[in-house]
Computed example of a mutant assay.
Amino acid sequence: MFEVRELREIAEFERVDALFETIWRFGPAAPPVTVELMRALTHAGGYAAGAFDGDRLVGASVGFLAAGAALHSHVTGTIAPGAGHALKLHQRRWAGEHGLERVTWTYDPLVRRNAHFNLAKLGARPVAYLPDFYGVMADAINRGDESDRLLTEWPVGGSPAPAPERADAVVALADEGGRPVPGPVDADTVLVAVPADIERLRGADPGAAKSWRHAVRDVLGGLMAEGRAVTGFRGRTYYVVERA
């Protein structure tokens, strides 16, 4: 059980900075948020919270108010199982207490565990595919990869019901031997696979990682650009995409 609380002091933000460096190993690259920016954001009414296991900081999240009555969670990092879930619940509660309607964030669509957590566990839903959103990133986890992101919304008042599994769903992008293989996209419900471990693949086979990046961008991004809706994440492998 974690205690999640808002952070307001410079010393607390310095602990968050050290935690994020442990997770992403930015080195000389710029971190996504600095101690000074955390101080400014919270002073202006933004969000910073930490998840604690006793006195140990095991997770933190920093966000800001966004258009459309939303709290936008800019960066969240954790080093303990369950801390991310505790932080997300705190974000939604904080947003409701401040009269907001939703929590939004972006994540890498190729990371299976994040897709499962965001869509299957939380019930959030992607609303836009953002190609190379941050440009090429230089931290140890993302180094050299293009930074495609899914903009995701989570309503404060409750999550949408999960879409029922349809037996007639067609695989629009398959994982065959670790490589992406496109299929038909003209069915009412299609499934879009992502690789088993994109973070390992970046180091072991950069060419395959790049192939996955562009294949998911073309298929999933293309379907969303047509107005189709991502309604779930099936079997820890496939995005479920349906005609609106």
Rank of each mutant, 00 (worst) to 15 (best):
F2Q: 04
A169G: 11
F52S: 08
A67Q: 13
A215C: 12
W212F: 07
W94D: 06
R179F: 06
A51L: 07
T22R: 15
D148F: 06
A128M: 08
P126T: 11
A138Q: 15
G157F: 09
A49E: 03
D55M: 07
R179A: 14
G232T: 02
G183E: 10
R5V: 13
G46Q: 07
D55R: 14
V103T: 08
P182W: 08
D139R: 05
D53S: 14
V181S: 12
A115F: 01
F26G: 08
Q91K: 04
A209R: 01
L87C: 12
A60E: 02
V185D: 05
A80H: 15
W24C: 04
P155T: 10
A83I: 01
D53P: 00
L37S: 13
L100F: 05
G183Q: 10
H74D: 11
I10N: 07
W154T: 08
T22L: 12
Y107K: 06
I198Y: 01
A174I: 04
A95Y: 03
P182D: 10
G27L: 08
S61R: 00
E165D: 11
W105Y: 07
A138H: 13
F64W: 13
H116A: 13
M1A: 15
A40G: 09
H43R: 15
P32W: 05
E21K: 04
D132M: 07
Q91L: 05
G144E: 04
L119W: 00
R15Y: 03
F26C: 14
L89E: 14
V241T: 02
V192K: 00
T152F: 03
E101W: 09
A60C: 13
P109V: 02
E176H: 11
M38D: 06
A48I: 10
E14G: 10
P131T: 10
A80V: 07
T231D: 08
P109F: 01
V194P: 00
L119H: 00
P131W: 10
A49G: 07
V181M: 11
A80R: 15
D168M: 05
E3W: 01
W105E: 01
W212C: 05
A163V: 08
L130V: 06
K210A: 15
R213A: 04
G63M: 01
V185M: 12
R25D: 13
I10F: 03
E146F: 07
A229C: 10
T34N: 05
N114M: 11
V240Y: 00
P32D: 08
L71M: 13
A70L: 09
L130P: 06
A69I: 05
G222R: 05
E21L: 06
L122Q: 02
V127S: 08
R166P: 01
S73C: 13
P32M: 10
A225Q: 14
A174K: 03
